[in-house]
Structure formats: C-alpha cells, structure tokens
Simulated scan of single mutants.
Amino acid sequence: MTGEGFGLPEPILIVGGYGYRNVGDEAILAGLLHRLAGRGLTVVSRSPAETSAMHGVRSIPVWSAVSELRHHRSVVIGGGGLFGRHMGLLGRLLPAYGLLARVPSRAVALMGVGIDAEQSALGGTMLRMLARRAARIEVRDATSRDVLRSWHVESVVRPDLSSLMPAAPPSVGRHLLAMAGVDGSRPVIGLCLTAIDERMGDAVADAVVGCVNRMPDVEFLFVPMSQHPYVPRHNDLEFARSLRGRAPRIRVLEGVHHPAAVLSLFGALSGAVCMRYHALLFADRAGVPIVPLAYADKCRAWLAEHDETSIEPTADALTSAIRALLPAVRMAG
C-alpha cells in the first residue's frame, strides 16, 4: 500500500524517534515513507544526514522542529512506542509538540503508535488532549486501542508500520553473517537483547553466558537493535560487547545497517532470542523460531496476541528453549 495520505494536506512533517540508530524506529520510518510515497515529506531526525542517506528523504534536525511547523500543513507522529514509559524526554515532549502543531488549524495524525496504559499525570493529560484533537489515529495493537477507548477516543488497529518495509535480498543477510565472522554451516542463534531494565539485563547476561558455554556446537550472534548515541542503557552494542567479554564465542554485528538488511539477516538465522519488540516482529516475519524474553508491556502484549509467553531469564530455561528449536543438532551439555 503506497501513496496513502488520508487527505492530509501537504507538505507533511513526520516526527518520531528517528536518527537514534534504533533498527525498529528506522523500519517504522521506512514503512511510513513507503505508505506516503509521492507526498511532500520532511522527517525530523536527531541525525538528518544519516536519515537522508538511509531513506532518501529530506530531513531536518530536532532543534528546528518547531520553526518548521510554519512551512508544513500537516504533522504525522509516526510509529512505535513513542508514548511508552521507556521513551524518556522524547515521549514526554511529543504530546506537547502535537498540541502545538494543531495551532491554528494544522492537521495532526498519530500513525502506527503504541500507547501504554501507565502515563505520568501531566504526560497522560496532554496525550489525551492530543488524541481527542487528532485527525486520525492508527495503533499497532489491541492493547493501545483499548487504552484509547478508555479515554473515549476511537482508533484503527493496523500492523506495525515496519511490516510495509520490503526486506533486502537473502544474500544481504548472509553477507552480514559473514561480516560478523559467523560460521553459516552451523546452527546460528540471534541474540536481540537489551539492558534497558538493569535488573533483568543482569539476569539475562548470566543466562546467556551460561547457555553459550553449554552449547559449543551452536553459533551465537548478537544483533544490536538499538545503538542510542547518548544513553548507554539504550545502546545494545555496549551490552553485546560486555557479553562477548564474558563469553568470547559470541559474535557481534557491528556497524549501522539499513533495517531491511537486518530483516534479511533474520531470515538467515536458525532461531532468535528476542527481548526487543521489533526483534519479535522481524523473527515472526522471517519465519524464524522465537525464544521470547519480554522486558516491556508492548512485548508482552505482542506475545499474548500470538499465544506465546516469555521464558524465565535463566541459563536452564534458555538452554532448554534453544535445544527445543534445534532438535536435530547434537549438543554437549
């Protein structure tokens, strides 16, 4: 589905968590640009040069987001857990920005968003005001729809915007495996982990190290889904390197890659241990068996909708789950 704009007047300013080197957010942007193809678009980004290079779209820095409003007739707040508890300052400011954008008569649409039930008092009030004034709201899960309904606001549930992004060819994923030094002739388990929740991150780290040491016949590749430039706990690459220090057999995918290339990589995996939301989506889309370790409500909601539950972050549970995915492989224990 391309070129769909819902009658939003052009030019359209797109706002979201873009330019922070988060694979999921960049996949959302790729899907949104695919959907709005042919429209006059500008994207607000932390790193406009990176965003323009990756997506081929005009991009402006965050600091000019307010002044650019006078040059745009519509604003799309696009995709992801922008209104979740883990979003920090960005999540707190977006509702206020959306309300500002509505003045005097600019159209504001919320597209592909996830909304947590738990909001700060001020943030929740502003988000409810914005939702009631939005020209259109699309959410990516039933839980978000139900939150909005509790505020007497209707919305449309549609798949995550990343689902509109075409995958790169399989050869791209195989190339990334080779770049990371992975032996593709052996089973390859992707590790899509995060230490955002410090306590859970510590438990997951111990579980992964124990599991890797028990499975010498399996390749493990850490796929960082976020490389936040400012917040270490949101930089999965740092977590990956700390794990590799404890378990040197873990390979790490270095560098910043287009989300379509990362999606292609998922297709080359034998299975994936997924904490990150878009790791779940990518693995599901690629038809790769999932070992879920949910750290956030959005992950638990997705798992519930797919009749799956998160495993416990222990070496025993993780080892058993991976062995169940690879019944034909002889493993030392």
Rank of each mutant, 00 (worst) to 15 (best):
residue 128 R to L: 01
residue 307 D to V: 00
residue 195 A to V: 05
residue 139 V to P: 05
residue 210 G to T: 11
residue 70 R to H: 13
residue 39 R to M: 14
residue 25 D to V: 06
residue 179 M to L: 09
residue 133 R to Q: 12
residue 254 E to F: 01
residue 314 T to D: 12
residue 202 D to V: 15
residue 113 V to C: 11
residue 286 A to G: 07
residue 303 L to V: 00
residue 134 A to W: 07
residue 327 P to Q: 13
residue 14 I to F: 08
residue 328 A to N: 12
residue 280 L to K: 14
residue 290 I to C: 09
residue 196 I to S: 11
residue 281 L to A: 08
residue 254 E to T: 01
residue 234 H to A: 14
residue 322 I to R: 06
residue 257 H to N: 05
residue 197 D to N: 15
residue 134 A to N: 12
residue 63 W to D: 15
residue 215 M to R: 10
residue 80 G to S: 13
residue 167 A to Y: 08
residue 116 D to Q: 07
residue 72 H to M: 06
residue 260 A to K: 03
residue 230 Y to L: 11
residue 199 R to T: 14
residue 293 L to R: 02
residue 212 V to K: 05
residue 309 T to G: 02
residue 128 R to F: 00
residue 66 V to Q: 11
residue 277 Y to W: 04
residue 92 R to S: 14
residue 180 A to P: 01
residue 247 A to L: 00
residue 217 D to M: 04
residue 172 V to W: 04
residue 56 G to S: 10
residue 317 A to Y: 06
residue 317 A to M: 03
residue 68 E to R: 15
residue 145 R to D: 10
residue 228 H to Y: 11
residue 8 L to M: 14
residue 66 V to T: 12
residue 95 P to T: 07
residue 130 L to M: 05
residue 311 I to D: 00
residue 252 V to C: 00
residue 299 C to S: 11
residue 161 L to P: 04
residue 57 V to W: 07
residue 318 L to A: 06
residue 77 I to N: 03
residue 61 P to C: 10
residue 98 G to F: 04
residue 185 S to W: 01
residue 226 S to C: 12
residue 205 A to E: 15
residue 171 S to P: 02
residue 83 F to G: 05
residue 161 L to M: 15
residue 82 L to V: 05
residue 157 V to A: 11
residue 170 P to T: 02
residue 85 R to D: 10
residue 102 R to G: 09
residue 317 A to C: 02
residue 63 W to C: 10
residue 181 G to D: 07
residue 294 A to E: 02
residue 288 V to A: 06
residue 20 Y to C: 04
residue 295 Y to Q: 12
residue 247 A to S: 06
residue 126 M to P: 03
residue 223 V to M: 08
residue 27 A to S: 14
residue 75 V to C: 10
residue 223 V to Q: 06
residue 28 I to K: 04
residue 211 C to Q: 01
residue 118 E to C: 01
residue 307 D to Y: 00
residue 201 G to E: 13
residue 260 A to P: 01
residue 134 A to C: 12
residue 227 Q to R: 15
residue 49 A to V: 03
residue 152 H to C: 03
residue 215 M to G: 07
residue 84 G to S: 15
residue 322 I to A: 05
residue 224 P to K: 09
residue 189 I to N: 08
residue 178 A to F: 03
residue 85 R to G: 04
residue 137 I to N: 09
residue 68 E to N: 15
residue 67 S to Y: 07
residue 244 R to P: 00
residue 188 V to N: 06
residue 130 L to F: 05
residue 317 A to N: 07
residue 106 R to E: 13
residue 317 A to F: 06
residue 293 L to Y: 02
residue 265 L to R: 04
residue 244 R to Q: 14
residue 78 G to T: 02
residue 7 G to A: 10
residue 101 A to F: 08
residue 4 E to Q: 15
residue 262 V to N: 07
residue 98 G to I: 01
residue 282 F to Q: 13
residue 197 D to T: 12
residue 11 P to R: 14
residue 207 A to R: 05
residue 245 G to A: 14
residue 266 F to N: 09
residue 64 S to F: 05
residue 23 V to W: 07
residue 278 H to A: 03
residue 104 P to L: 08
residue 189 I to A: 10
residue 199 R to Q: 15
residue 267 G to P: 07
residue 214 R to M: 02
